[in-house]
Nucleic acid binder design. Structure first.
Length: 107
DNA sequence: ACCGTGACTCTGC
DNA sequence: TGCAGAGCCACGG
């Protein structure tokens, strides 16, 4: 029997997979698209459970300010940033990318 | 059941 | 621009 929480994780991952290369989404938006408005923290938890070799583009999810908030220190952060830059996303001077330009929205 | 903690977000100063 | 407060969902001691 599959736990409800697992089903929710699956739904969240499915939404994340829809984010195209070169675009990003926020924890809050992913939560809403997964049918869980207000559960941004739940999204972070779902991504935390992903294996290191996953094909799910977890790096395309940033916070509402366009900043990288992954745990694991500068290592993990620099890796995520490198992946995003590799897809053509430009961070510029600050630690945040421009959601205005790169934010993805369905429809 | 209570409380602390966390890949969050919004509001207000 | 930055920081504190409060609200948020979920987990573990």
């Amino acid at each position: 029997m599959a736990s409800r929480q697992i089903d929710i994780d699956q739904r969240i991952w499915q939404v994340v997979m829809l984010i195209p290369p070169g675009k990003v989404s926020t924890y809050g938006d992913v939560a809403r698209m997964a049918g869980l408005p207000g559960a941004a923290r739940r999204v972070g938890r779902a991504l935390r459970g992903l294996p290191g070799d996953t094909l799910i583009p977890w790096h395309r999810v940033v916070n509402a300010q366009g900043r990288i908030v992954v745990p694991g220190g500068d290592d993990a952060r620099s890796e995520q940033r490198a992946r995003l830059e590799g897809e053509g996303i430009h961070f510029g001077r600050g630690p945040a990318l421009s959601l205005r330009k790169y934010r993805w929205r369905p429809g």
